[in-house]
Design a protein around this nucleic acid. Structure first.
Lengths: 205, 205
DNA sequence: TGCGATACTGATTCATCAGTCAGTTGACTG
DNA sequence: CAGTCAACTGACTGATGAATCAGTATCGCA
């Protein structure tokens, strides 16, 4: 079945993401992507010059989707605490939220592939910037107290990354409950929130 | 030149680590390892059944070395704050301390290779346990105040992991100075230390 | 000093996969 | 309803790299 180039390209990118999540960047073969869509391998090469380019574009696509979703979720929340919690909800995989597996893989790959490093760095920085903005807004309304929003944003994001690695890679060492609780506790400490700030937000959901 | 099996095996494991740091798990070829030692590829297969086994053993070897060095550094420090700072010194690469690159790569690989997941999980847990013990000791002497040492250890470790990813993968987004400062600040908050706890420890070095 | 055992070689085999290309199909266009 | 162009196929090629194996070198020991 013939399709418009733009349509086919995104279709291939999405399929590639699925394969990469499952097999990793290194283990992904062009034939796997083709099989997912039930097309020939030739078609993949028709749309993408090389496998490396395909992987890079696929990661960029996925990362941008994640970021867009994060921003939408943050925007949808009305209170500063709600926005924070929306950012923390990135941990819950069933939301179709970021596939941490993809990111963790990408970190490894980015150490060698300049192209991936650029994408990963850019998106990661934007991610932190979004979080920083939430904090600044909270400070502006007087709900948060924070001397250095940039530092706080990076620390919270790094904590999330580190904890996400544990739950994603080391199955069973941490519960999702601990993970959420700990990030919230860190936010309460960083931003000097009332201790029940999140328990109320949770009930609201 | 003929060598004793045990000697040759560790030689190969060390060479493998060097190659993996440089090329990643996926990009490491048996021929690269052989070249490092100026031996034939056949020799590598003489000592190790398969490439996968070689990589797993090499990672295990490196991880155990890292952990042993961490423990030694912690033991060498005399005060609780000194021990904490020894643990944080893992960030400084010139010490021959853990190659974060190797760990980050291993996380990615561990999501697919059961063998690597076990090694990574075990060593990571031991790492956190060591940190937790430092905290408990500090609490015992009254120098630290901490309601939940386990949680504090995991949070600090996760923060380190997350920040280490940024400096290792995303060259230039963070300075090493910020990184150290932030981890220390987190420790001060977690353990209710005096604000100058680490500045004094640093001067002592 | 010779002999078995063990470390080691390197040429070869075999499988895998990215990328190519000549040819086919199907959709729009005039 | 041709004709053309873009999307697509699938068999092929060439490179790469893990693993094998028959043979060689070197050691320790009798």
């Amino acid at each position: 079945m013939k399709k418009d180039v733009a349509v086919r390209r995104t279709e291939i990118l999405e399929a590639t993401c699925r394969v990469v999540v499952e097999r990793g960047f290194g283990g992904t073969r062009v034939a796997d992507v083709a099989e997912q869509l039930d097309v020939s391998t030739g078609l993949i090469h028709y749309h993408f010059d090389s496998k490396d380019q395909l992987l890079a574009e696929a990661f960029s696509y996925a990362a941008q989707e994640d970021l867009a979703r994060l921003r939408a979720d943050i925007d949808a929340a009305t209170t500063p605490v709600g926005k924070l919690d929306a950012a923390f909800a990135m941990f819950e995989p069933e939301d179709g939220h970021p596939s941490w597996g993809l990111w963790i893989d990408a970190w490894g790959e980015a150490m060698r592939v300049k192209e991936l490093a650029t994408i990963s760095r850019t998106l990661d920085v934007e991610w932190k910037d979004a979080l920083e903005q939430v904090i600044r807004d909270g400070v502006a309304t007087g709900e948060f107290m924070c001397a250095d929003p940039r530092a706080a944003a990076w620390r919270l994001a790094a904590l999330m990354d580190g904890l996400a690695v544990q739950v994603t890679v080391h199955d069973g060492v941490l519960t999702r409950r601990e993970l959420t609780d700990w990030v919230r506790a860190a936010a309460i400490a960083e931003l000097q929130l009332p201790l029940d700030a999140f328990s109320m937000a949770t009930q609201r959901r």
